[in-house]
Amino acid sequence: MNDRVTLPTALARRTNKVLRPRDAADVYAHPRGEFERLLKQAVLRRISNGYYALAPMERLGDIRWRPDLAAAALGIAQADYGRDAVALMGVTAARRHGALPRAIGTAVVAVPKQRPQLHTDVGEIVFVKRDVARLDLERVDTELTAGWMTTPEQTALDIAARPGLGGIEEADASAILRALARKVDWALIEDLARAQHRPAALTRVKEAAGA
């Protein structure tokens, strides 16, 4: 760690380590200038225009550190909409559930408003307008923040309904559904499919499972 690095306690204690300059307005009189200093010290890393990731304490000053794409996606979404209004979903949740063995360069996150895809230096983020309160969710912890992601059941229905979301191929979507089908509670996924009016998606999940 660089001995010259100084980080205000208010920033170090933030639960979401993705920051926008305005998030530090109560800490610095001129946040953008201070952020430039922290970038040079490798305390912050710019991940996209207007968004910065605070390095873990053990990596402060390490210019090689890069945040995980899913963590960045969840952190950015939380910074803009709050923790409980967003959730990792689709292929990103599938990877967290162990149903996608390889990393891909796109993260998918549910948010309350329509917004365009965001390019970051760790990958692309696709935002999907969803009412997170109507989704089946579970807790997720990342290196930048803690929050929500869709359960295996919800993830399977979402991928079956929109198999190309996140830029995956049809064959990849089918493989993900087969892997998720081994994890789902069938009574729960049937209840979700009824509540969300997704009979076709449920049928596809069952076909993938050979049920």
Results as ranks from 00 to 15, higher is better:
I125V: 13
L118E: 13
A99D: 04
A103F: 03
F127S: 09
D131S: 07
G98W: 08
R115K: 13
V122Q: 03
A110R: 10
V122K: 01
A107E: 02
H97K: 03
G123C: 09
V108H: 00
H119E: 15
A107C: 04
Q117E: 06
A99F: 01
P101K: 11
R102F: 10
A133T: 15
D121P: 06
V108R: 01
T120M: 03
A99H: 03
A110L: 14
Q117V: 07
G98N: 06
I125R: 11
G105Q: 11
H97T: 07
A99E: 05
Q114L: 11
G105A: 12
D131R: 10
E124T: 14
G98Y: 09
Q117C: 01
P112R: 01
P116N: 09
T106D: 06
P101N: 09
V111R: 06
R96F: 04
H119G: 15
F127E: 00
R115N: 10
V128L: 12
A103K: 01
G105P: 03
L100N: 02
P116R: 15
L100M: 10
V126M: 11
P101D: 07
T106V: 14
Q114R: 15
L100F: 01
E124L: 13
V132I: 14
V126R: 12
L118P: 04
V109T: 10
V128A: 07
R96N: 10
R96T: 04
R130C: 07
F127A: 14
V111S: 06
D121S: 15
I125S: 08
A133Y: 11
A107I: 00
F127R: 13
A110W: 13
A103G: 10
I125L: 09
V109E: 00
G98I: 03
R102H: 14
R96Y: 08
R115V: 05
P112K: 01
V132N: 11
F127H: 13
I125N: 09
A133D: 15
R115D: 12
P116V: 14
D121Y: 12
V108A: 00
R96E: 10
L100S: 05
Q114H: 10
V122L: 05
Q114C: 02
V111N: 01
T120Y: 00
R130Y: 03
A107M: 05
K129L: 03
A107W: 03
R115T: 10
R102M: 09
K113F: 07
P112F: 12
H119I: 15
V122Y: 03
K129T: 11
V128T: 12
